[in-house]
Design a protein around this nucleic acid. Structure first.
Lengths: 180, 180
DNA sequence: CATATCATGTAACCGGTTACATGATTCC
DNA sequence: GGAATCATGTAACCGGTTACATGATATG
């Protein structure tokens, strides 16, 4: 699923500007999809060319003007088709786990720091998810709540595993040090 | 962390050919890092040019000849430096969750299929991790076991959440259908 | 003789990131 | 006046994927 398709999805929830779409990405999708302005703005331009969205300039009081995008019928149809064809992949890219695999090349202090940092990041993500779940201005379909529930359950399980087992890992590696 | 750096990491565990490195990626790293031949072979060529690895042709009986790569001192040093500078990121890119967020644009049958497929994929990943943990020819440091433990805990929690809550999600969306 | 596995590579392409560039408006 | 937020865009770059191309060896 590319940024273009996801923009159609966001617009299926209501008209929005590029800037506002970026916010939806950050608020509602950030734990499973990341996109920056550098991909969103060109995506919207292309979708406009293709007739999947229309664009209108909207003047605002107390704010700079913005371009509000609106999903067309063909855009909605294209999005539904894309959804039906999308394989439900779930990919992880984790430098954290790479560091763990090569933990014996780190000092115990470095490893402890890595684990601490990961715990802090998990907590950040969890509070971000909790903050968004139940907020009105956020995407709040039952499906979104379900996705948030899965993410939460997985993060909490990972957190728990780290808290429960880190002492053992750290001690095992320290002993290895003294052995040599 | 790029493929080049990860190749140094694999070679820090022992000499290997490109083909063998690919296997390590598949066996030990596949649940948190994916890489194909198209990135591994060019990476090894570049590492050779940079002096981080050396390469020697090895003839084999009953098999085509292979190029075995060996980590140099500067390669080992470069890898340790890279590890120390790596932020322990853990990124998820999930089309599965995108489908969930827009579940109301799917038929109940499609949604059920998506959930079923995800459960099957989780089971595949879990059995893959179990198969690798404890196998001798696999990377088997205590850090690798720890990473596998986290992955396992997270996958099982996600699996459990789906199994426990999918009925509710499916029924909620079916009712929505009859409402209209 | 076909299929599978082992083995190595190249080149085009693609999607996304990063950095750059600009400017309005608001609040302290 | 400076910082923060709102707002839109472009262009270079980069890492990785995909498809292509080749060929040895082994097994059924």
């Amino acid at each position: 699923m590319d940024v273009k398709t996801l923009c159609l999805g966001v617009l299926s929830l209501g008209d929005a500007s590029g800037y506002e779409i970026k916010k939806v990405f950050e608020d509602a999708f950030s734990h499973f999809y990341v996109a920056g302005f550098g991909s969103i703005y060109p995506a919207l331009a292309e979708l406009t060319r293709e007739g999947y969205v229309t664009c209108s300039d909207v003047e605002q009081e107390k704010r700079p003007a913005k371009k509000v995008y609106h999903l067309t019928g063909s855009g909605a149809a294209a999005f539904r088709t894309a959804l039906a064809e999308t394989y439900p992949s779930h990919k992880v890219r984790s430098d954290f786990m790479v560091l763990l695999v090569f933990a014996d090349l780190l000092t115990p202090a470095q490893l402890a720091g890595v684990l601490q940092q990961r715990l802090a990041d998990i907590d950040d993500t969890l509070s971000h998810i909790r903050a968004c779940t139940g907020r009105d201005d956020c995407v709040s379909s039952s499906g979104a709540a379900f996705a948030a529930g899965i993410a939460r359950a997985m993060l909490e399980a990972g957190r728990e595993y780290i808290v429960q087992n880190r002492e053992g890992l750290l001690q095992g590696l320290e002993n290895k040090d003294t052995e040599s």
